[in-house]
């Protein structure tokens, strides 16, 4: 892991989304993350690859696990990690993003990790800075590191991604996790289904390369992976679905519905889990089926891999070319 070599395997200045990445680039990131996964289970978890580098967590939206995961990843690689939470409710969003970006850019960070409630805002910000930007979730658009950590979790358990049947269930409409996963799984040759009431599936989703199902029995049939998405409670009371009770009855993952999937199907959830809404507590906690804690563990490894892949391009000729 020579920090100064140009990174031809991942020649990008930013990581803004999964869409546009190649299968080779994804495999490179997953292979790298795999080594960090083992490393993170070892006794000494500190490297100096990012020594002297500054990583800034810039979150325009509340987050605990993603921010912490990036923070740990940056620190384990030896970087200085700074957390900035920006409450943007009372400020005009477009101005804030650019103004904030310009201000922070003047402090010369190496990597900005950005989350923003508006789709496209992270890319907008990336155009205004000279450092690298990693998208930690923009609106309902993309959350690339989540898709990568999901892929790493699946690959570690199933040994492959190609040919697997993956059901992504629930609030696909509002989900950046869902979209990034659809891109990644399609690039990697998995078969993807989305399952949910039509009110939670965006129009034209089938054009993104998925099969659309409106009931769990057909949607989960013979699946290798059941990926549940979070449904925010404020969307449950008659607006997108009638009630928590009805949603759980028809679309919540319990053992009865899970029976349609393959016997060794894995259950995934990006967290935080709404127990009793999109997933039954027993199912979520079933250590033989649920890999939810493992996803969190994979998250740190994937973010270390992403930070390494991105910063390897710094101080090289590639920087200008890849921008």
């Amino acid at each position: 892991m020579d920090g100064n070599a140009p990174n031809r395997a991942f020649a990008h200045r930013h990581l803004l989304g999964i869409e546009g990445l190649s299968a080779d680039e994804i495999i490179y990131l997953l292979d790298l993350a795999d080594t960090y996964f083992e490393f993170n289970r070892g006794p000494d978890r500190k490297l100096d690859m990012l020594r002297g580098r500054t990583v800034m967590n810039l979150f325009f939206e509340d987050s605990t696990r993603t921010r912490t995961s990036f923070e740990i990843a940056g620190k384990r690689l030896g970087g200085d990690v700074i957390n900035m939470s920006v409450r943007n409710s009372s400020i005009k969003k477009g101005e804030t993003v650019i103004d904030t970006a310009m201000t922070l850019n003047a402090m010369n960070p190496d990597v900005l990790i950005v989350r923003h409630p508006d789709s496209g805002a992270v890319e907008l910000l990336s155009q205004k800075v000279t450092c690298s930007v990693i998208n930690a979730g923009d609106g309902s658009h993309e959350h690339p590191t989540q898709a990568l950590l999901d892929a790493l979790t699946i690959r570690r358990r199933k040994g492959r991604l190609r040919g697997l049947l993956v059901a992504i269930c629930g609030d696909v409409l509002h989900s950046r996790v869902g979209r990034s996963n659809i891109h990644l799984l399609n690039i990697m040759g998995a078969r993807v289904r989305v399952v949910g009431p039509p009110t939670l599936l965006p129009p034209g989703i089938e054009r993104m390369g998925v099969e659309v199902h409106h009931d769990m029995a057909s949607g989960l049939a013979d699946c290798d992976i059941v990926m549940m998405l979070r449904l925010q409670t404020e969307r449950m009371h008659g607006i997108f679905v009638p009630s928590v009770r009805e949603y759980f009855h028809f679309f919540g993952l319990d053992y009865a519905k899970l029976a349609a999937a393959k016997p060794d199907a894995l259950i995934m959830h990006p967290g935080p889990v709404n127990r009793g809404a999109e997933i039954d507590t027993e199912v979520a906690d079933d250590i033989t089926r649920s890999v939810i804690p493992e996803q969190v563990e994979a998250g740190v490894a994937v973010r270390m891999a992403c930070l390494e892949a991105i910063t390897r391009n710094h101080s090289t000729e590639l920087e200008g070319a890849a921008a």
Binding site: H237, G238, I239, V241, P242, S243, R245, E246, H249, F250
Partner: peptide, 15 residues
């Protein structure tokens, strides 16, 4: 179709 016929929030149609 809507709770209390108020025209705002849908009922538990499935149940």
């Amino acid at each position: 179709i809507t709770q209390g016929l108020e025209g705002k929030r849908m009922t538990e149609m499935g149940l």
